[in-house]
Design a protein around this nucleic acid. Structure first.
Length: 417
DNA sequence: TCTGGGGTCCTAGGACCC
DNA sequence: TCTGGGGTCCTAGGACCC
């Protein structure tokens, strides 16, 4: 791993805006803003005026008055995404989606068919443009992290290959902000200590970093800065949580209105959960006060469920706790206000895994049979502990499904070379 | 640039068990 | 009854990513 550059990071350029420009010729070569309230995406022409995603629509339009604003068409983006991922799979089965518009591809096993990784990157780009009509940027490197940094450098519409042996020369001059896990907070801390480039970070002492970044972050960043990233492509990733939230503007809504809003969100996510054939065990309600402070309340159920009435009832209770505090209905709401509510279901499992596991709960099956069952669950549902959601800990045989070696261990598929 | 909506992962403290 | 170590789970909060 890492001694050959066989990992691709493929990233669609300005995805939503590119789909709009593809579908409406009048938008081509024009500054385009997708999304009305806030900017969900913008074309490169709009980026040149300083427009960024997440920006309020009004500010974006004042920066770029000539921009054409269009509403988001999620269905079109999702169809385009599916079509692009089909092209990825034409080259390798080892595709790890990161979001609708980007993925890692392991192409070690595909090189004998399509040629070296850099050629595969070119063919991939050409094919996505030809079949789907969208521009793709590709980074090619020996590790995931480097491939992702390379694709960012390749934008727009380019390819950057980091040849083996040149990794540190490529990485060290770059600003620390390129590191995965460095956001505004961590960046400020690093700059305060005179660390501005990845090279600065790589030559820093672990203990010194630890003192202001903590154990995990310092180890993680130091590893990345020294180009140490052993993570393999994981084709089995599944959602670990599902949620919905809604911003409410400045207005403090009344208590019953917030409860109705929460009910609608909780029902919506429960429906998504069932559609995905998943069950959840933890309900988290989130809340943003008028001072933009975030608060959460969560509860873990004894058994995972996708039943709307159960999930909505828990969400309602948790919301009331946030709204009322210890001093009665609405008393907290009056003081802290509410500008956003949301609900997330997590500790997701799969009802099928539970049903498959159940026979083992009441019959003392031999361990080799159990091992076979665990293998079959793993092949269907991935490496993560899908059976955890069943929480049948009082049944030792099913509890065995949660054995770290069986389901929690990272044993990603390896390409056959 | 004071902010949408969808996520992931980590931490610290407390409860509880052996 | 007190003290201790080790482990797991749950909860609340925070940082980060697209």
């Amino acid at each position: 791993m890492g001694d050959r550059a066989t990992i691709l990071h493929a990233d669609l350029d300005a995805f939503y805006a590119s789909v709009e420009q593809r579908d409406d010729p009048r938008l081509r070569n024009q500054p385009v803003i997708v999304g009305e309230g806030v900017v969900l995406a913008c074309s490169y022409e709009a980026k040149r005026c300083g427009v960024r995603s997440g920006m309020r629509g009004g500010i974006a339009r004042s920066l770029c008055p000539e921009a054409i604003t269009v509403p988001a068409r999620m269905k079109a983006y999702s169809e385009a995404s599916t079509a692009v991922f089909e092209q990825f799979h034409e080259f390798t089965p080892f595709v790890e989606p990161l979001s609708v518009d980007e993925a890692f591809l392991e192409v070690a096993g595909a090189e004998h068919i399509f040629g070296p990784a850099a050629h595969i990157a070119q063919k991939l780009k050409a094919q996505v443009l030809d079949k789907v009509g969208l521009a793709l940027s590709v980074g090619v490197a020996g590790t995931k992290f480097l491939a992702k940094v390379a694709s960012a450098q390749a934008k727009p519409d380019g390819i950057v290959v980091v040849e083996p042996g040149t990794e540190l020369a490529f990485l060290h001059p770059l600003p620390i902000e390129v590191l995965w896990g460095v956001g505004p907070v961590t960046a400020t801390k690093l700059h305060d200590h005179g660390i501005d480039t990845v090279g600065d970070l790589a030559s820093s002492g672990r203990e010194a970093l630890k003192s202001y970044l903590g154990n995990h972050t310092s180890g993680h960043l130091l590893a990345l800065a020294n180009n140490c990233d052993p993570r393999a492509i994981d084709t089995n990733r599944r959602d670990r949580s599902m949620g919905a939230q809604r911003a409410l503007g400045q207005k403090v809504r009344d208590r019953e209105e917030l409860r109705r809003e929460m009910l609608a969100l909780a029902e919506k996510v429960a429906a998504r959960l069932r559609k995905a054939q998943r069950v959840a065990r933890t309900v988290t309600v989130r809340y943003r006060t008028s001072e933009m402070r975030h608060e959460t309340r969560s509860r873990t159920l004894t058994e995972a469920t996708a039943q709307t009435d159960v999930l909505t009832a828990v969400a309602d209770e948790l919301l009331l706790d946030l709204l009322d505090g210890p001093h009665g209905p609405g008393s907290r709401l009056g003081r802290v206000g509410c500008t956003l509510i949301g609900v997330t279901y997590s500790a997701l499992g799969s009802p099928d895994a539970i049903q498959m596991a159940l026979p083992f709960a009441d019959a003392g099956r031999p361990t080799d049979e159990l091992d076979t069952m665990i293998d079959s669950i793993r092949s269907r549902w991935g490496n993560k502990a899908v059976a955890r959601a069943s929480l049948l800990d009082h049944e030792p045989e099913v509890a065995a499904l949660n054995r770290p070696t069986a389901l929690d261990s990272e044993t990603p598929e390896q390409p056959t070379t």
